[in-house]
Amino acid sequence: MKEQLGKIKAEALAEIGNAEQSNTLNDIRIKFLGKKGVLTAILRGMGDLAPEERPVIGEIVNQVRQSIEKALDDRGLTLAAREQQVKLAQETLDIFLPGRSPRMGHAHPLQLVLEEIEDIFLGMGFTIAEGPEVEQDYYNFEALNLPKDHPARDMHDSLYITPEVLLRTHTSPVQIRTMERMHPNPIRIIAPGRVYRRDALDASHSPMFLQLEGLLVDKGVTFGDLKGVLTLFAKKFYGEDRQIRMRPSFFPFTEPSAEVDVSCGCLGKGCRVCKGTGWIEILGAGSVNPIVLKMAGYDPEEVSGFAFGMGIERIAMRKYDINDIRVFYENDQRFLNQF
């Protein structure tokens, strides 16, 4: 009996040692340890043994079973590890092939520039005001000290709907509407939006374009405040190393008025962008004309203010080195994908 058990053990261990796959181990387990297995058969045959021999043989059977089980487990771990290795090797990918990216949406460059500028002024306490694009002549011109037949109206060749209604030529009517609503309280707004001029479409003109204007009205606001706010804007938008320069100009709705230049990225050396001057014109500005304040309901003896306005396309064209205004409204996918 003992010998037989020894043989069984040796046989089982040998088979386990030779097993090359996990499922073979299972067969071996059934063959030796299963209900109809070799070891079970021996246990069944124990009835024939002398009673004093039974515990001795029982003990040996147990030892053999434990040895086989351990061998099965050990071999199982080894094989599992080996099989996983093989499987992983089979799963090897070409890590140099391109990945599967979700499609990316792109912002429109004008929207990008607009939001960048808006955020700078939001940071200075401005809120964003809006108003109609189809506007009354009064708000677009008259309330801005541009009565009918004023020569300065020539600068704004307009698109009229009726003799009294037109497509706004600037976002200034939003300023007037805000002043009418707010007086005598202080104002600090920017007004972005679409504006329209009678300009045929070409590389540098568009009958429709985006403008952003600002208005600040309060007690004791000075022309120097305008300079300070615009300097801060220019430094945030163009870079800390930039300066601004104000040149006297004329707008009927501001007094004094200025064209505002920002120093060029070439730092005065002169380049293609600044046409050698070292300066780039970016916006028009000035202190709100007392006539305009008064028409909108403010007392110019009590408050003062300033206003400024810039064309978003021109700023975007310079920022991204775009030389044709038309590309903004064509929406070519290859163009949009760059932003």
Binding site: G125, F126, G224, D225
Partner: peptide, 18 residues
């Protein structure tokens, strides 16, 4: 114009979108 000092007017409101 370049002789006029640049100043920043204090704000009485928070700048934010509606």
């Amino acid at each position: 114009y370049d002789q006029i000092p640049a100043t920043i007017p204090a704000s009485r409101q928070i700048g934010e979108r509606s």
